[in-house]
């Protein structure tokens, strides 16, 4: 991509008491992309986000947002960012609306109309004048999103945004983030340890483990090419052993978890199916074994869950 990045992390390092929590992390987030920040619990995702929004100081390296250094020009950098860091903690003794007014006052030029618009957008119109104390976690999450997008930030940072949301809420949030990225050109930086979710939501994903960036990969690109090239195909058949005998000629055929698996492109899959059916094997299903992000993730992190 040739665009100027909205956020740039350069060799960001954080040491606390001799322990390196974040080790020379460098990455760039471009306009209008949904960037996933993936890592097992304790890998340093939240710490990185805290440094991006100025809640924590960096030991070395620098982060710039919209070209402004978080270290040296914090107010300028912060004016381009909307964020929820961990849980969206609001003032419980204020109403949802009062909370929004509170945060709106801290940014220039947020009108009352804009607040109303955002309230409608996150679907809180009916309850916005209730005290936050009475909100469910999902409603607080929505209010959190509202305060984060109110000032139309160039970069939206969400730390584990689907925590506590029900499936409908997760889906709604996902659709909304994509819409925000596509229609308003907002870059979204989302952290999560839920792989499947990141797969659905993000354009690119960075994988963090033990404070080190292991990999940055584009998600959309890979799933697009998978169909044409040879991949692993799985056949669900009534007698896998017999089927394997029929396919002796094909070197890659083997049985995995009771399924017949072989490396094949589209034509070979059809051909194999024909051969099996003609030999009297009942074929119940055929599917391509795509490598999910989860497999890739476990592959690069070596299956570790806590870094």
């Amino acid at each position: 991509m040739s665009q100027t990045p909205v956020a740039r992390l350069q060799d960001v390092t954080k040491r606390i008491g001799g322990r390196t929590i974040i080790d020379r992390v460098s990455l760039e987030v471009y306009p209008g992309e949904v960037f996933g920040f993936l890592g097992p619990n304790g890998s340093g995702k939240t710490t990185t986000i805290r440094m991006m929004v100025g809640l924590m100081a960096m030991t070395s390296g620098d982060i710039s947002i919209g070209g402004h250094s978080v270290k040296r020009e914090y107010p300028k950098a912060a004016s381009q960012v909307g964020a929820i860091v961990e849980n969206p903690e609001m003032y419980k003794y204020l109403t949802g609306y009062q909370n929004l007014v509170h945060f709106a006052r801290m940014n220039p030029s947020i009108t009352r109309q804009r607040i109303d618009e955002v309230v409608k957008l996150v679907g809180l119109s009916g309850r916005i004048h209730d005290k936050v104390r009475k909100y469910s976690l999902g409603m607080r999450q929505r209010l959190g999103v509202a305060q984060a997008i109110m000032h139309r930030p160039k970069l939206l940072i969400l730390d584990e945004p689907t925590n506590g949301l029900d499936p409908a809420g997760i889906r709604e949030l996902r659709d909304y983030l994509r819409q925000l990225a596509q229609e308003e050109g907002t870059s979204v930086f989302v952290s999560s340890h839920l792989l499947s979710e990141m797969e659905l939501m993000c354009d690119r994903v960075a994988i963090l483990q033990k404070g080190q960036l292991i990999d940055i990969r584009s998600i959309r690109g890979e799933t697009g090419t998978a169909a044409k090239e040879a991949g692993e195909a799985l056949f669900e058949v009534d007698h896998p052993d017999a089927a394997l005998g029929i396919l002796q000629g094909q070197g890659s055929a083997r049985i995995v978890d009771g399924l017949l698996q072989l490396t094949a492109d589209r034509d070979l899959i059809a051909e194999t199916n024909k051969r099996l059916v003609e030999a009297g094997i009942r074929v119940y299903g055929i599917r391509a074994k795509t490598k999910s992000l989860e497999d890739q993730f476990l592959e690069v992190t070596g299956g570790e869950t806590v870094g």
């Binding site: 107010p75 300028k76 004016s79 961990e86 969206p88 903690e89 003032y91 801290m106 940014n107």
Partner: peptide, 14 residues
């Protein structure tokens, strides 16, 4: 203690 400090400090103010 309530965590609201986070939302307060990420605004464009020193």
């Amino acid at each position: 203690s309530t965590g609201t400090i986070k939302l307060l400090l990420i605004r464009p103010w020193s």
